[in-house]
């Protein structure tokens, strides 16, 4: 059986994002001095390679700025790698930055509907799931308030229960679990264990090595934009690091 996720020497270069000319004047000045001032490139990812079998779960750890979030976004299909190839056979649900999939002026309920439909469900299917989602998120009292009034913890509840209920083949989570209180975090972890037992694939970015130990079969350590270690032995790899 082919792996569900295959990443072959993927690199991502951001071309001087912060130095983008912001006005015409600046642009002209830049153009004038372009010969001395060579373009700088920022390598967010360098030749990252790994593959993941269906039903396995991968933890990604590393310092801030090591490229974890960039990698995860590429895995979700947001943007294309500068070089290399990513193949993913299965439906993907992503929990990236908090609130990235939420419109602040819409209510929690409306946001769930949007999320469901964009995940490939029909309206009827979303309506069938709606009560379960709201119940899991424990947001009954706030679900008809605009998301603008939500706290970070509430965003997480909404986003997590939405993402997990639509039953994707792969779920990608970027650190966000840390926002929830201990009880809700535990609830998420229990739910993710169920998800894994169902033969689904999890990719989890976290600074919490304990979480990785409990949830992941394999671990990828990111260092300075490159995947340094890729280990099946989670314990050892974490200790080595």
């Amino acid at each position: 059986m082919p792996p569900i996720l295959e990443v072959e020497s993927v690199s991502k270069v951001f071309k001087t994002l912060s130095r983008r000319p912001s006005t015409l004047q600046e642009w002209l000045a830049r153009w004038w001095s372009s010969r001395q001032n060579r373009k700088e490139a920022f390598w967010a990812l360098r030749e990252v390679t790994f593959s993941l079998e269906r039903g396995r779960s991968l933890g990604i750890i590393g310092h801030n700025g090591a490229g974890k979030s960039t990698l995860l976004r590429l895995l979700c299909g947001l943007g294309r790698p500068t070089s290399g190839r990513i193949t993913c056979s299965g439906s993907v649900s992503g929990l990236l930055e908090l609130g990235s999939g939420v419109h602040l002026d819409m209510t929690g309920r409306e946001n769930i509907m949007t999320a469901g439909i964009l995940n490939g469900l029909t309206k009827r299917q979303v309506l069938a799931q709606l009560d379960g989602i709201i119940e899991f998120s424990e947001l009954e009292d706030f679900i008809d308030h605009p998301a603008r009034t939500y706290s970070n913890g509430m965003f997480l509840r909404l986003a997590f229960s939405t993402a997990i209920h639509f039953d994707p083949d792969v779920i990608m989570i970027d650190e966000v679990l840390a926002v929830g209180d201990a009880r809700f975090q535990q609830k998420c972890i229990d739910r993710l264990q169920v998800f894994r037992k169902a033969g689904k694939t999890l990719v989890l970015v976290s600074h919490d090595t304990e979480q990785i130990r409990r949830l992941c079969d394999e671990v990828l350590v990111m260092e300075e934009a490159a995947g340094r270690h890729f280990g099946v032995a989670v314990e050892e790899t974490i200790r080595e690091k």
């Binding site: 299909g77 649900s93 999939g101 939420v102 419109h103 949007t114």
Partner: peptide
């Protein structure tokens, strides 16, 4: 303005 949609996988 629709970053919330544009930044979703599969959209």
């Amino acid at each position: 303005y629709n970053r919330d949609l544009v930044r979703r996988p599969n959209f």
